[in-house]
Write a protein that binds this DNA or RNA. Sequence first.
DNA 1: CACGTCACCTGCGTGC
DNA 2: TGCACGCAGGTGACGT
Length: 279
Amino acid sequence: MPELPEVETIKRALALGGRGGASILNRRITAAHIYWPRTLASPDVVSFIDNVKEQQIVNIQRRAKFLVINLDHSKLIIHLRMSGDIRVAEQVPDLGSPLLPHDRLALVFENNSAMIFNDTRKFGRVWLTQDPLEILGELGPEPLDESLRPEQFWEMLQKFQRQLKPLLMDQHFLAGMGNIYTDEALFKAKLHPLTLSSRLSLNQAALLLSAIRSVLNEGIRRNGASIDWVYRGGDFQNAFNVYQKDGEPCPVCGTIIQRMVVGQRGTHFCPNCQRESIN
DNA sequence: CACGTCACCTGCGTGC
DNA sequence: TGCACGCAGGTGACGT
């Protein structure tokens, strides 16, 4: 489910309070429970529980779609993949068994609150490491980082002859875009999802970067998007222009929005506003 | 290099 | 009602 804005929303709520409980900053971990061992990418369950205990939460960051929780002696890195979510529970029981269906991992704190990772589809992963670059080292630039200049973004696009949609979703190219925000950004930039990246002019690249930042910032401002049965608490879904709007009129020109499959992902676009470049 | 396919999982909506 | 099917916010390993 979560793309950059959803992960950013969760990060802020964990730091400020609001994911069902108070801020987890400065909490000391007294116990860990792993209900679905494959959630743990590394290390193994025994080492994880042993190492995470007695550590304190120093701060929380986001890199791409990863949550990076800095402990005083190591880093806890979490990727929510398709259906992961994190909540805080106050005054928990012993937590020897899951509190809710699909709870996969729980960290218990000294004040009897807990941070719980819930993940219906079991795709999410958690790492405890000394060296976060082992996990984050190959990621592309953060789209919201202002040091990424339009000229540089254009040069990045020029280097590949790839379709825009899968390229923007490639975390090695640019880090944080997912299916929703990519469709919305391409619509805003009036670019067809299959346009080859190397064909973009400097001006088109600048407009695309600006559209990406615009949709990501609005997503963050709206606390992410909440669709399907998975509750997020955001309302960016009310601002979708094309995502899952196939069959409905384009809000700009009235042409019926189409859906196609690109790189195995549902892709939504306006065939009139977003023309595939011919040459 | 760039694209397609499959695998990993569960649950929901649709249509027969 | 039951049941098959397609779909879902992600990613990585392969094959061509």
